[in-house]
Design a protein around this nucleic acid. Sequence first.
DNA 1: ACTAAATTTGGTATAACGCCAACATTTACT
DNA 2: AGTAAATGTTGGCGTTATACCAAATTTAGT
Lengths: 154, 154
Amino acid sequence: MSPHSGLALPARKVEYLKFIFESGGTARTNDIASAFSVDPSTITKTFAELTSGGYLLHTPYRGVTLTDAGRRDAAFFIRRHRILSLMLVRNGLSPKEACNEVRRFESMVSKKAVDRICEFMGHPRQGVCGEITHDDEESTLNAERMALKMSLEH
Amino acid sequence: MSPHSGLALPARKVEYLKFIFESGGTARTNDIASAFSVDPSTITKTFAELTSGGYLLHTPYRGVTLTDAGRRDAAFFIRRHRILSLMLVRNGLSPKEACNEVRRFESMVSKKAVDRICEFMGHPRQGVCGEITHDDEESTLNAERMALKMSLEH
DNA sequence: ACTAAATTTGGTATAACGCCAACATTTACT
DNA sequence: AGTAAATGTTGGCGTTATACCAAATTTAGT
């Protein structure tokens, strides 16, 4: 499994990273534990693993922040989710069905496949559960999210 | 997870059942062990699990046979594989890529989704890695396969 | 009957999850 | 500041899904 195949992380870690990304790049243990209804201790342990994998920085008792690599990968995970959901919608599923279906298997779909599907669909911008971001835009959009979160936390 | 969601079995067991189905409904430990390059003891254990799950009948030291339920499910697994592969081919992937991609995630795709996609694609007959069988035909075709295998083993 | 091949058993291992109880830290309130 | 509540962490344990190895068993061929 090459490091950029898109298959480096198991399903649950992908979900957590997407969530952190969408929360502006930072999160605390309880944010995730309650969002996913799992025990906080599970999240602490997952933070440790994602930190040693280079996806997160963990400051004990304070929370995590995505690293650059983590942000890049999370952006891909979100894009992958949206491309695949859109593909299913274009193949007969309702948006909600598509989203749920994709959540179960997305972690097993390679970047190469996603890129091909994306190209084939004409690099759509509007997905079924949010905008689809294409490479260059990711950093920009995320920077905005970060700035917003910073200002909210002052 | 309802019993007919199509998600009752983990990936590897799905692969094994598909293989047994395509071998005519019966197989011996070594057939599977060598086809998948795993230790025979792993297969023996999996046979036990699939037997207690009602998918197989296992006669120790002699091999397994699909039960009716096992045959029905295996037929669905194969149909699912082909429908999904075809969808990916129709969305930009090569047949080989599609097959390999689908093998990784097919076990997570529900029957309901497959049925919708199948309908949306117009109940295609020709898949990218074999014919796509639709409900009524399954028993017929499989009966033929069984008969063939019987005659070969005389 | 004897041996070789196939199969099974029993033990062990890994990854990916998750829970609980006990302990530690931080925060918020009086 | 002092303490209680909220939050987070540790250590232990459990499950499912896979797989391997070595030893024992069964079957098959001569």
